[in-house]
Every structure is written in C-alpha cells, then in structure tokens.
C-alpha cells in the first residue's frame, strides 16, 4: 500500500503511522449530554466497509498529519489531504 502524501509524493505505507477515524469531533465538555457524547466519541465507531476517512501521520517523511480516504475493502486510496487545511500551501 502506498499513500500519495500531498507534500512528499507517493510513499510506502511503512513511513506512516495510523491513528484512526477522522470523522469524529471532540464534543463540548460543558454540554448537558457531555457524558453520553464523550462515550460515543471515545468508543463507538462507524467502522465502514468501503470508504473510510482516517488520520495518518507521515512520521518518516514530512511529519504532517494527513486525512486519507481509503477503501477498507480494497485498500485503494481515494483521496489525501492535510489534516489542517490552513497549511495546505506547498512552498515553491
């Protein structure tokens, strides 16, 4: 499996570390349903068979966090973007 890093180009998956589901948003701890929301955020997963948005860290490369969209059935990479969009620009 190779991951096309937007900064470094196509690299072997060996260079990357995996974190997991990138669709989760940390809940508001002050909200009245915070306990329930944190249970879902921490433990419950969609775990889809097919397209999955997930965090990968390019540890042995540019050390940038990426959001990779990958098909979990075929391992095909469907899209890659920086996890923090404001730093998307690649220096000339």
């Amino acid at each position: 499996m190779r991951i096309p890093c937007p900064y470094c180009g196509s690299r072997d998956a060996h260079e990357f570390a995996y974190l997991g589901d990138a669709t989760l948003t940390r809940p508001d701890p002050a909200a009245p349903d915070a306990a329930e929301a944190f249970h879902a955020y921490t433990y419950l997963r969609e775990n889809p068979e097919g397209a999955h948005r997930e965090y990968w860290y390019h540890a042995n490369g540019c050390r940038r966090w990426l959001v990779v969209t990958r098909n979990t059935k075929t391992h095909e990479i469907l899209g890659v973007e920086f996890a923090r969009p404001s730093t998307d620009e690649v220096p000339a």
């Binding site: 998956a13 775990n47 999955h52 997930e54 059935k73 391992h75």
Partner: peptide
C-alpha cells in the same frame, strides 16, 4: 497491520 480493513489480506510492512 494497524489500519481499518475488511480485505482479509495485509501489506508488506508487517510481513517485513
């Protein structure tokens, strides 16, 4: 292998 998968097959980094 360490990433979500339904493929029933893995990749080379773990083999290595």
């Amino acid at each position: 292998d360490g990433y979500n998968s339904y493929a029933q097959r893995g990749n080379m980094p773990v083999v290595e």
